[in-house]
Amino acid sequence: MEPFVEHHGRAVALRRDDVDTDQILPAEFCKRVVKSGYEDALFARWRAEDGFVLEQPQYADATVLLAGRDFGIGSSREHAVWALRDWGFRAVVATGFGDIFRRNALNNGLVPVDLPTPVVEELMALAESAEGLRVTVDLRAGLLRRPGGEHPFTVDERARARLLEGQDVIAATLLRNEDIEAYEARRPAWLPEIPRGAFDRTERSEVGA
């Protein structure tokens, strides 16, 4: 994965709390079997409404999304993170995140910046001002910097280390193969294993096809 150390870019304020992943990417777009090209699906329903903030020209180059409380709750669909990345976002600033979303984001180099509500409110006001707001997400230092201030944030320490180096997480686990084999040798024998064709595949009920 491409490393993430620091990112500087324009912020855009999405004034909504409890933005769930069904809003970020409606289910009908989960039919696709690819991992990119979801920018058309991002907030598809809200973008159909007049004046949606992401459609305003002054935010066309925004790469940092500011949102309210508890961003990314609900469905585990990683498509939501892919869509944010495909749109151009590199970080989301909010107060609280859905746990699965937070993990998915870190797995895709989209940094979840968890900050207290008063700070997010202040950032939103700046982003909505005539001058707009550009921020720096400094993952190495764990700081969100803005003109005239900075705000510390934390992400899972291990995920942070991996992102800074752009490490392949699966490769790292595969390096621990000896440990995994030793564990497998200790697993109780009764634990289920699913043989192929456990239930006759040709046995079909009278309905369906």
């Binding site: 585990s76 669909r77 998915n104 797995n107 699966i170 686990t173 621990r176």
Partner: peptide
């Protein structure tokens, strides 16, 4: 617990997950 697609790939490849 529920996981995203990157973690599905991780489990398929390793049968393990690194979690806090």
């Amino acid at each position: 617990f529920g996981i995203g697609t990157s973690d599905v790939e991780h489990v398929l490849a390793t049968q393990c997950l690194e979690i806090s």
